[in-house]
Design a protein around this nucleic acid. Structure first.
Lengths: 335, 335
DNA sequence: CTGAAAGCGCTAACAT
DNA sequence: ATGTTAGCGCTTTCAG
């Protein structure tokens, strides 16, 4: 590895002269600057980032901790985070918590020792269910900024980027009501997550606000050890009155669609479905699933922006919560 | 941030004593070791990784460069890489090339300056199509190890982890032949990638080896600016004789299945489909897609193992190519 | 058993 | 305009 020392020796100048020359310092003569730069280029000199970081107490690296990279939402968020971070001259170190509280603690510990300037994270399911957030607050107390996205907690005082989960589910439900649906169920595999709870609330509120709607709200929650497919197939087989589905997680909407098609239910004539899957590979179905688009790219981008803002001016930047507007995208499974 | 210096001052010993004590050096008295450790724990001391890395010229970090994280195969590989790396005490820094040659060069440059000990990567489409691999060889010449997985190049001399693409496609095609299929087409959106070429070869060879097969091989390649869905729908509509499909990329198999169902083609009675999609969310279809499983987790794991081996003993470890066996998983779209 | 000192590669305040 | 020096936090050799 080529170092400043090498260059200095070759050129018979001091290390600091080389350093200054490479930074275009006006303390150095144009002539020297040129010579230094020429040699640096020739030898393909690149400053050792470790040394720079150590010296400056700044790594230009963001730690990203996501619960599950096989979940398309998080993969997409990571994509956006990586893209925006790169654009702003930051690297990312990625850790996957795998929804485990302990892994989240480890990652946070591991990276908070000078490896990163701050964190962008979405909290693990275990963490959220138990609402054990001491480990996160400990990092904040060390004055390392964190931005939470999507899955957040009221017990953590930091920057947050979320979507309007309540409003999005409210709008989705209202849309089905406006189609004249009389038997709208909610499907959720994320009952225990903050976003799941909020979306359920939106659904309840929408039904509640509609004075002409007579049915009881029907909230189908599916646990992790259940077969989603069997459960949904049974549901649609038994309860023929269902004419609207609001699926508030990643996959149940698509599965419901597949099962409806299999059971020869006419979608969207006799059954409307709205999912939360975002536009992705899942949508090679025919008809295509209508969804609430979560603007995942915007979420990632906004998270990076918020964190970098904080990094640039730690003291004065207030902790804010940014809400990214979700949007109903009507495709083939709604009228 | 708590440093060795802090601990030393508090305890009225030297910095080196503290350092040695924390490493259980037998130069230090048990008593001192205990006192040091107690205080370290109390103050939640964590060694600054940057300083350790700088000192040791070793970062315990692996740079991972993947072409596209929204591709489920790469997301899964990344998952496995992260998991195995963590297990072995390594962090990963992730960059996404987005299939761009220039971005790949940037990432490599950026991280090769002391930030990582080595790389695991799958090369970008642009890089592979043009076979411009100088940037990668430049890194290897700096004595920074690289392990390539899935998409590799003969012009790069380094560790490689691949699947037996030729054999896998050969077996898949042979299976359809054994079902008695008489009109088997190949579907590919990755015609220009090394893996795509090998899989196509396997398909050709299998047909060629079967003396009773009379049709010409029919290799449908779909370019990036085409609508895959329209193309496949048109294909299945026009050519009713097709009774077998080998889809050698991530998505065309699933799309073919959807279109076949839409067109009321009986799968697998009148048409068999084998994809390369790996078991994933795509398979909420009914029937489920039969696929060639690429053992993606094994690929990721093997890549990490190979790289760490090389890191541990740079000089003596030979560059090998490890082939992970692919496996035909028969589900619902084959007889 | 403990400590002083050098050095990883870099930056920057402070000479000259 | 250039050089000297100190120091970021750590490890490690060498002296005591």
């Amino acid at each position: 590895m080529v170092t400043l020392k090498h260059l200095a020796e070759q050129l018979n100048v001091s290390i600091s002269t080389v350093s200054k020359a490479l930074h275009d310092s006006n303390e150095i003569s144009p002539d020297t600057i040129e010579r230094v730069k020429a040699l640096a280029k020739f030898l393909n000199y690149k400053p050792n980032q470790l040394a720079v970081s150590l010296k400056n107490s700044k790594t230009n690296t963001i730690g990203v901790i996501i619960p599950n990279i096989l979940n398309h939402f998080f993969a997409k968020a990571l994509f956006a985070i990586e893209q925006e971070a790169t654009k702003q001259g930051y690297n990312i170190i990625t850790c996957v918590s795998n929804e485990k509280h302990s892994k989240e603690i480890n990652s946070l510990q591991l990276l908070s020792n000078g490896s990163v300037d701050g964190f962008i994270m979405s909290i693990a399911e275990e963490t959220q269910v138990a609402n054990k957030v001491d480990h996160i607050n400990a990092i904040l107390n060390q004055n390392i900024p964190i931005v939470l996205f999507d899955r957040v907690s009221d017990d953590i005082d930091c920057g947050k980027v979320i979507i309007d989960d309540f409003g999005a589910a409210y709008e989705a439900t209202k849309y089905l009501l406006s189609e004249g649906r009389k038997n709208i169920i909610l499907l959720s595999r994320i009952d225990e997550l903050s976003v799941g709870k909020l979306r359920a609330k939106g659904y309840f509120k929408a039904l509640d606000d509609d004075t002409t709607y007579n049915e009881e709200p029907n909230c189908i929650t599916i646990s992790h050890d259940e077969s989603i497919e069997e459960r949904i197939e049974a549901l649609l087989t038994k309860n023929k009155k269902i004419d609207g589905i609001v699926a508030v997680d990643n996959t149940t909407g698509v599965i419901a669609l597949h099962k409806a098609l299999k059971l020869n239910i006419n979608v969207p004539k006799d059954l409307s479905i709205i999912g939360f899957s975002d536009e992705n590979v899942l949508q090679f179905t025919d008809p295509k699933l209508s969804t609430v688009s979560q603007h995942t790219l915007d979420i990632g981008k906004a998270s990076v922006e918020m964190l970098i803002n904080k990094l640039k001016d730690k003291s004065s930047v207030q902790n804010t919560t940014k809400t990214i507007k979700a949007k109903l995208i009507l495709r083939g499974t709604t009228k």
